[in-house]
């Protein structure tokens, strides 16, 4: 007996994604070929793998048809519950965010003139001039000071 069968699938009842789902589940059990059929139909050709008996193949065809229904129902439920699922995910992600107090945004608010590390203070003002430096000596000579030693 030939282990090959063509199934015509109505595109309105079973969209391509549904046919894909059913085909993917059965790819390891039989050979699946999908083509366009007549008006609004997909033509799905199933062929048994070597060693597949006629009885096993008939069971496979039945399983494929059941899987089509299963996938169609899954798609329908997925479409109906999409908003609820999106809401649940949004809520879960939102609740995972840290509270606004923990973000540390308030700590960064400050005056741009604040200089807690003293970066804006000039070197001379902060540390003064070194004693005995050439500049200091010139100043002393100009003012007429003498070394007491």
């Amino acid at each position: 007996m030939a282990t090959e069968k063509e199934i015509l699938v109505n595109q309105k009842v079973y969209p391509l994604d549904v046919v894909f789902g059913a085909a993917f589940v059965n790819l390891d059990k039989c050979y699946v070929f999908i083509d366009k059929g007549e008006k609004n139909q997909w033509k799905v050709r199933l062929r048994g793998k070597p060693g597949c008996s006629a009885k096993e193949f008939n069971a496979l065809v039945g399983e494929f048809e059941n899987e089509l229904l299963n996938q169609a129902l899954r798609a329908q439920i997925a479409e109906k519950t999409q908003k609820v699922r999106d809401l649940i995910v949004h809520r879960a992600l939102f609740s995972a965010l840290p509270a606004s107090d923990d973000l540390g945004l308030d700590d960064e608010v400050g005056d741009y003139l604040d200089d807690p590390l003293g970066i804006a203070i000039p070197w001379e003002e902060k540390f003064g001039k070194e004693e005995g430096s050439p500049e200091q000596a010139q100043k002393k000579e100009g003012s007429g000071e003498e070394d007491p030693s």
């Binding site: 894909f20 993917f24 790819l27 050979y31 699946v32 070929f33 999908i34 070597p50």
Partner: peptide
Amino acid sequence: QVVDEFLNYALAESISNR
């Protein structure tokens, strides 16, 4: 049989790519 295997593989790849 290679043709059938080829078509199965191509279908699996197409579904995965989508």
